[in-house]
Design a binder for these strands. Structure first.
Lengths: 162, 162
DNA sequence: TCTGAAAAAATAGCCGT
DNA sequence: ACGGCTATTTTTTCAGA
């Protein structure tokens, strides 16, 4: 994986497309080279299928951290939500009803990057306290949610209205 | 969304492909009808792009729950991990170093389905206690992890070895 | 709403660099 | 490894049922 590969993967994520033509426009890499590169990345297991699901371990973002965030502000969280999402590496962010206000999942390139992540959160004025949990191993991180259901269940549960 | 749509979406998830040809083999729906259907689903916002990212709200799996699982067994969790993943609706599952052993994210079709989920976990013999947290609103649930990084950061952090 | 057939695009392969 | 080119395969469009 060199710079070109990373630019390509980033373009796929940003544009949300696998179209060689569009990727060429974005990256200036010739269409046939894009092919060549993507085939190699697939071979290496970095990209998984024709939906371009990325293997986070292989791409170098294999460290996962869960962060609970408690705020000291009880009004509208509107602006604060934006600030949370601005923190680099945050892939999931939930506003919850439990003991903490927000729960965040972040994918990082190394465990030493956790410090920066926490600092970014603690720096926000609305944050009262954070509580981080290291992920030792990921049993599943499913990009395709429907895989985790039987067809029968989906038909039962999603078809009730019509 | 009728049965055909659901079968189609399920096939996309299972086969991890958007290829009309492959989807035809799986579902027996004619290739050009698959197109017609997918266009409608895209129009309706159920599918987001040509990578077939699904809108969970629109598809009817908009309820998210986080479950902490504490086990009473301190040996190998190997078989137990399988049991967790067998619970329907579990999309993320992490083995952690924190106060609890496992943290699970599940996407459900309604809040009344939470009961079944918890029961499924509590029924497992290794489970000592569970603690569920309802998600009030999802700020982000990113299928494309690289979107949450600047290109500069990716180049800095992922390129260090070569 | 659906589909077969035509048009367009993506992929594979060749080969000189 | 790269990338221009052509051949092949696959996807997308669309008129008509």
């Amino acid at each position: 994986m060199d710079e070109r590969d990373i630019r390509l993967l980033k373009a796929i994520s940003d544009l949300e497309t696998g179209s060689p033509e569009r990727l060429h426009e974005e990256t200036d890499i010739p269409v046939s080279t894009i092919h060549y590169r993507l085939n190699n990345l697939r071979e290496a297991g970095v990209i998984k299928n024709d939906l371009y699901d990325v293997d986070l371990e292989k791409v170098g973002l294999g460290v996962t951290v869960l962060v609970e965030i408690l705020t000291d502000y009880s009004g509208s969280h509107h602006d604060f939500k934006e600030k949370i999402l601005d923190v680099e590496g945050v892939t999931q962010a939930y506003f919850t009803m439990g003991e903490t206000d927000f729960i965040v999942v972040a994918h990082l390139s190394g465990s030493e990057k956790v410090e920066r992540l926490i600092t970014d959160f603690e720096t926000l004025e609305e944050v009262e306290r954070t509580n981080s949990t290291f992920v030792v191993s990921t049993l599943r991180d499913s990009a395709r949610v429907l895989q985790n259901y039987e067809l029968e269940t989906l038909l039962d549960e999603l078809l009730e209205d019509e």
